[in-house]
Simulated scan of single mutants.
Amino acid sequence: MSKTTSKPPDTVSALHSAPDLEWLEENVPRASAFQDTYFSRAGGLEETRHVFLGGNGLPERWQDRETFAIAEFGFGTGLNFLTTLQALRRLGTAPKLTFLSFELFPMTKDQLERALGAFPELAAETKELLQTWAPEPGWCRFAFEGAELLLAVGDAREMVDEPVRGKVVVPEIDAWYLDGFSPSKNPELWGEELLKAAFKLTAVDGTLATYTSAGWVRRNLQTAGFAINKCKGFAGKREMAVGKKG
């Protein structure tokens, strides 16, 4: 397995520095701190479509909607957002999308460009993201045609309380993409209290999807209030989890 290590200059802040990345074959980024890749080496774009769009019944649920809100813990490379944006734009009539994402270590523009270069099908959307990418600690808004990206740069466990308490105005969440690093390596993003906060932000008929089917994660989701089921996972993963606000 060939790899190189990159430590680009911090373009965000001393508190929320860019991640230290290892670059695997075909420019797949892996976070040194978590020893986990940002997307599946079996096909990141296909995984996003299978797990997060398919697991949340998209794009079917966009029909006859004027607005739709999606949230995730971990913006990463932005692959989930860009894949969703592309799918939305392919519809004849699409709702206005609000995409809420929490990220403690936002990538630099150079890191994003290298990582997203693996997905030429998303070249147009990637170009838009790179042109506007300038994250700062706190809440950042980025405007796209047909969508708004609301990026919370900081610890999700702290910042999720702000929309819950009404300090930051966001719509109720219609679908969650639970896409943190592996629960065994990044348990903070799968904790019971954080998932309870996610539940409070969720619309009555809101859904969730995640690539993991780990038992303790499913139990935490159920404790938070979600009804959880398992279904076929992506590529070599036998199962994944989906859920709905119960």
Rank of each mutant, 00 (worst) to 15 (best):
D110I: 13
G233S: 06
T126D: 00
A71N: 00
T207I: 06
P120S: 10
L130T: 06
T4W: 13
T202S: 00
L178P: 11
K200D: 08
W190Y: 11
C140K: 12
R165D: 15
N80Q: 00
Q131R: 14
W139A: 07
D174W: 01
L221N: 07
L112H: 03
P120H: 10
F75Y: 06
T132E: 15
S6Q: 14
E22D: 13
D64P: 05
V170R: 05
G76C: 02
E162F: 15
T98Y: 11
F142S: 11
A134E: 15
A152V: 09
S182A: 13
R49Y: 07
A31K: 11
T67F: 06
R219I: 04
E172C: 10
E60Y: 01
A227K: 06
E103M: 04
G78V: 01
W190L: 12
Y211N: 05
P29G: 11
K196N: 14
A115S: 05
P183Q: 15
L189C: 13
L58Y: 02
R238T: 07
F199W: 07
D10S: 14
P8V: 15
G44C: 04
P59R: 02
S13G: 08
T132R: 13
T98D: 12
E26L: 15
G180H: 03
E25A: 11
V170N: 04
H16R: 08
W216L: 14
G206T: 01
V169D: 15
N80L: 00
V28T: 05
E172T: 15
Y177E: 05
G138D: 12
A156I: 03
E125Q: 12
R165K: 15
F75S: 02
P59Q: 02
A241S: 11
